[in-house]
Amino acid sequence: MLTITRALHDAIVAHARADHPDEACGVVAGPAGTGRPERFIPMLNAARSPTFYEFDSGDLLKLYREMDDRDEEPVVVYHSHTATEAYPSRTDVSYASEPNAHYVLVSTAECGTDEGPFQFRSFRIVDGVITEEDVQVVDG
């Protein structure tokens, strides 16, 4: 199960809406070994595409160095789908390289940039196997 604060949940959704119609992407880092998502890190979709996301390699290297310096790890890796449901595509699965991370997908297919219905789902992706997990949003 992914337990995430309302503030982080809302920040991920806001990023997905702001970048629509392009896919948004980012990371929520947390203290290494805790599984607690704490630090919201929106990233630039280097592909600038409505159907694909790609972290800029330089930004990603900088992020991993920063997380290493802070004794953090990527707890949540998120991105949005702008025209389809919040479910990992084959490409998403092929790029899922963090076996301990929660892969969050937000679909803005129904709402676009507006306030309105969206999907927020979390998955574990290990060795190509997708397992959906419950999401608990907590105050704090």
Rank of each mutant, 00 (worst) to 15 (best):
S57V: 15
A32F: 02
G26Q: 04
V104M: 04
V93H: 06
T51K: 01
A109C: 08
D69N: 09
D114Y: 09
V75F: 05
V93W: 04
A47V: 08
C25F: 02
P74Q: 12
P37Y: 04
A46L: 05
D92C: 01
E73T: 14
D114Q: 13
G26I: 08
V76S: 05
V27W: 01
E23Q: 08
G116C: 08
G30A: 10
H20D: 12
D59S: 15
P37M: 11
T113K: 13
P31L: 11
A46Y: 09
R39D: 07
E72R: 13
R90K: 05
V28I: 14
V75S: 02
A24N: 02
R90S: 10
H20Q: 07
S49M: 03
S97D: 15
F52C: 01
S107G: 09
E72G: 04
P42A: 03
G33Y: 07
A109Q: 12
T84A: 15
R65A: 11
R65Q: 14
G33A: 08
C25N: 13
D114H: 11
P37K: 05
E66Y: 10
A24P: 00
Y64A: 07
C25I: 10
E115A: 14
P74W: 09
S89Q: 12
P117A: 00
D69T: 12
F52A: 00
E72V: 08
P50A: 13
A46C: 09
G26C: 07
V106S: 10
P50S: 12
L44I: 14
P117N: 03
M43I: 07
D92M: 05
H102W: 11
Y103M: 01
A86D: 02
